[in-house]
Every structure is written in C-alpha cells, then in structure tokens.
Computed example of a mutant assay.
Amino acid sequence: MRVLGDRLSLYLPVILMGVLALGTYWLVRSTPLLISHGLEAQVRHEPDYFMRKFSVKSFDDAGRLKSEVLGTDARHFPDSETLEIDLVSIRSFSEEGGLTTATAKRAVANADASEVQLFGEAHVVRQPMADKAGQVQPRMEFRGEFLHAFMDTERVKSHKPVELTRGNDKFTADAMDFDNLKRVMELKGRVKGTLVPAAAR
C-alpha cells in the first residue's frame, strides 16, 4: 500500500496540472462569447441623452450664425451621431446670407444640422436671394411627407410625392432631386406643372 501511495503522490501533480489545463481551456472558450455580447451592447441604437423644448445654434469661423435647430423633444444616438427631433424647426444661412427654413413633425439631423431628413408634413422654404451675378432668385417652397435637405449644398431630395413652388410657378411629382447651386431640378414619375408667364407676375 505504501508503494501504491508513493506512486500516486508522484502522479498527483500531473493530475492537478491536467485539471488546471481543462479549466483554462474552458475559460478561454467562454471568454470570447462574453466579449462579443459586450460589443453588441456597445453598438445598440439607443439614445445617450435627451433634450426637451430646446434650441441648438452653430456658428461659422467668423462667429456668424450658421444654423439654429429648435424642437419639443430630441434624442441623441451616439452610434450614428444623429439627433432625432420631434416638431422640429430649423433655420440655416448660406455663405451669401441666404435663409432656408425647414419644419416637420419629426426629423433626423447629423451633428451640425447640415443634413436633415424631415418626416411628416415636411416643409422647406428658401427665401428670395441675390446670386453671385446679382440676379434675384425667387422664393422656393417644398412640401411633402418626406424631404431630405442638405443645408450647406442647398440641395433637397425626396423619393416620395412632393409639391414645389418657385415664385408663382408650381409643380408636383412622385419624386424630386433639386440642386440650387447647379440650378438643376429633376422631377420623376407623374409630373404636373403650372408656369405663370412673366408678364402676368
């Protein structure tokens, strides 16, 4: 029995090492699952702060007001760096000082409000302004259930029906892409328009 006990005491460290190795193997197999769950939690689309009855202003390098965003409620999402706003109202000024306003039931805006998606009774108005050649551009108004406005580049797009008013001229279409800087308007689908002669304006 003593010989058997001596032999077991010789193999005891090997047995213990085997048990520790199995434990380590199990731990390594389990850890990546825990890490992956942690990463999934980090990239969830959940707001990290809220605002109520707020106004956010941004300014250019010269200290001039560039844009102002107002709303009743807002939620900031860190994963996409966007702000979701209820009952939104936006004022944006171009480099030449032209004013564009936008309102809607709901909006999703990027960090500096240079790109805004408007949902529900969307309404964008660009006030009359003189271009670089000194010609006065008439007031423009866009209406629809969805409008995608790019404030800095003065572009408005929509894949849903829209109504466009330019001065006294009116158009409706199933979709639209308007680029004010290039002075190009693309209307798609069923397009209807009313053009008022210059003499009648």
Rank of each mutant, 00 (worst) to 15 (best):
R201A: 14
G144Y: 01
A149F: 04
A107T: 06
D61P: 03
E154M: 14
F119S: 02
V162G: 06
M176P: 05
Y25L: 15
R139F: 09
A198P: 09
H37E: 15
E46D: 13
A198M: 12
M176L: 10
K157M: 07
E121P: 07
G189Y: 07
R7Y: 02
V162Q: 04
V43N: 12
F142D: 00
G120Q: 13
F142M: 01
T72G: 11
S158L: 08
L8C: 11
L34F: 11
K157C: 01
V125M: 08
M129T: 12
M151C: 00
E81R: 03
G193C: 03
M17T: 03
P13R: 03
I85E: 00
H123A: 12
Y49D: 11
M185R: 04
L39K: 15
T172V: 08
S114P: 09
E95L: 08
Q137C: 03
R139K: 15
S80N: 02
V56H: 04
L22M: 09
G63F: 11
M140H: 06
A133Q: 08
E145F: 03
F142K: 01
Y49P: 11
R166W: 04
R75Q: 10
L187T: 05
L65T: 12
A109R: 04
P78Y: 03
S92T: 07
S9Y: 06
N168S: 13
H37S: 06
G144K: 01
G18E: 00
D131V: 10
L39S: 12
S92H: 15
A133G: 12
T101P: 15
A199M: 13
L4Y: 13
V191I: 05
E81N: 11
K160C: 03
L187Q: 08
K157N: 13
V125H: 08
L10H: 02
G38T: 09
P13K: 10
T100A: 08
V88T: 10
T72E: 14
P32W: 07
L34H: 06
D177C: 13
E186Q: 13
K66L: 08
Y11P: 02
A122Y: 04
R52S: 14
